[in-house]
Design a protein around this nucleic acid. Sequence first.
RNA 1: GCCACUGUGGCUUAGGGGUAUAGCAUCCCAUUGGUAAUGGGAAGGUCGGGAGUUCAAAUCUCCCCAGUGGCUCCA
Length: 655
Amino acid sequence: MINVEINDEETHEYASGISAGEVLENVYGKRYGAVAAVVDDIERDMSFILDSDCKIEPILGESDEGLYILRHSCAHLLAQAVVEMFPDAKPTIGPPIDHGFYYDFHMNPIGDSELKELEKKMNKLIRSNIKIEREEHENNILREMFSDNKFKIEIMDDKIGQEIGSSVYRQGDFVDLCKGPHVPSTSHLRWFKLTSTSQAYWRADHNREPLTRIYGMCYATKAGLKERQRQIEEAGKRDHKKIGKEMELYMIDELIGKGLPVWLPNGEILRSEIEKYALETEESYGYQRVTTPALAKQELFECSGHLPHYSDGMYPPMEMDDGTYYLKAMNCPMHHLVYRNKKRSYRELPFRIAEYGTCYRNEMSGALAGLLRVRMLSMNDAHIYCTLDQVGQEVANNVKMVQDYYSRFGFENYHFRLSLWDPENTDKYIKQPENWASTQNHLREILDELEVPYVEAIGEAAFYGPKIDIQFTTALGREESMSTIQLDFAAKERFELSYKDENGEENGEVFVIHRAPLSTHERFVAFLTEHWAGNFPTWLSPVQVQIITISEKQKQYASKVSSILKEMKIRVSVDDSDATIGKKIRMHRKMRPAYMVILGEDEEKDNTVSIRIDRKGDSRSGDQCNGIPLEQFITDLTIEVKSRSRKSSLVKNEN
RNA sequence: GCCACUGUGGCUUAGGGGUAUAGCAUCCCAUUGGUAAUGGGAAGGUCGGGAGUUCAAAUCUCCCCAGUGGCUCCA
């Protein structure tokens, strides 16, 4: 007999040789929802045999660990269906990911109809409730089992070597090399859906074999799957491409080219409001503004290191009669020249120059997406030239600036990331290992001191130095880089940056901080649109007031109200057409004005307005305050706009 | 760039070998209306572009162009 402690709560006695699953079933009953077990702190299959005293805990399907196992098992199930349907397909790897899993196969590409067939087949395998069994084999047996799959052999070479054995999991005729654990049978995998296919490369190396990747989502319960589908649908409604079209923020025309958005009047209002706000903020932080050209000579980008390290991201050169020119992908080289334009004194440091600079990047055509990834972008860029001692304070100021900006725009779903170089893959970076080590530590200390929580990411640095990136989570739950604060230890040598220090010596220890707290206009507006679902705070709204008349009798009063608002610099638009009031409201809600102002007989008689919130997708739609004195409305509105308030406070929720 | 899918008037969309549906928007007429559909009428498309198969192509085939998702996650 052995003593088994369950879930840190109770201890039971069992005959040695009992399985983890049998114990859990004995204690919790059959429908407890566990997919595997933790035995003495190691994740095990339900079939794991207990032959000595131990501790055991169930892994529930809905826990993070449980979902991981479910998704991993679901990937195996997909592989089983694929090899049954396409006997020549070679499974490679199939990990769980957020919301689901994927599996890469060496096989011909497949389309939607095959995807549906695969899903059907998987459902059939689920209904057959096939047992998933673990087997352990010697190295040579394993190599024999997977002799027709060079990818699995390569995995073994890398991970296991030639000596030791490992485990496989078998379900029906399908066997996969795997550490496990897995769910005990296919019936646990009911709540999945295959979502898409893609092409990937073996080992993510485009010189190696192209693979067909199949994606799926998988949850422990029907409710989990439904919730994810709802989230996807919800995210679709917030999609900046859809809202951008509806609100006429921007357009993309084939004749201009892809990745080259045109800002329409409404989008330009957003851009210029954001820019105005940034200019004010940065002026108060001691930045000076400059404007630099869109192109420059090859020699500049050789000097900066862009051509050796970043040429893939730049457009091909233009041969002119006096040399070779490139469109700029970054503003920094030109800003360095601004610094170098005259002798600098220590009294000038930190020297901060800023520019809403327009850069051109040669993104792969397939990577372009709405405003999120474009080929021409306007960066909220600035460079700070300072001593090593000043770096801490400057970075701290920028972290604070980012936090202030985000709170002003209402962003909450973000986190800081310390982006480090990859010492295993140094080709992408300037080769100065000691500088990498020291600057990375420096940034880490600054973040620790500020007590800002952050994660570290290897291989995400810029070629010239480590970064603090601010990562934004989209409505779909995907992570994207928004703001960035980068420390550059290479520019001082490449551009011979120096200053005259307190001792009258020429000092070359000039550190450069690159920073873009508001990302690019393009990406920022995309996030902003998604975050607010187009229902921007009043100060940003392209249409701040949409006047709607009840009948054409109020034409004059509407025109009077509108000219007063215009004088107060409020963006106002009037609909005094002969359509019905209901129709006018319906028509304008998709443009999402901050407020609708209804003007009828009563309002005109009393010199008042009725203020209404009615914006597509806004839960406050329909809220209205009647009979507000015109004077008061104008005062309140002006305050709300001037203070850049996040709240639409002119309509109280009393109805 | 690569893989898959998609492309029908300004927008949303039906159809799927016999040159095209509807709604919204637009314009006109009537209506002067109190909060998510007031009636009626008109106009608007070489079905993303090009080539091919066919008596006949929006529809089938091929090539382009553009959009969407994916191409970091290492048993």
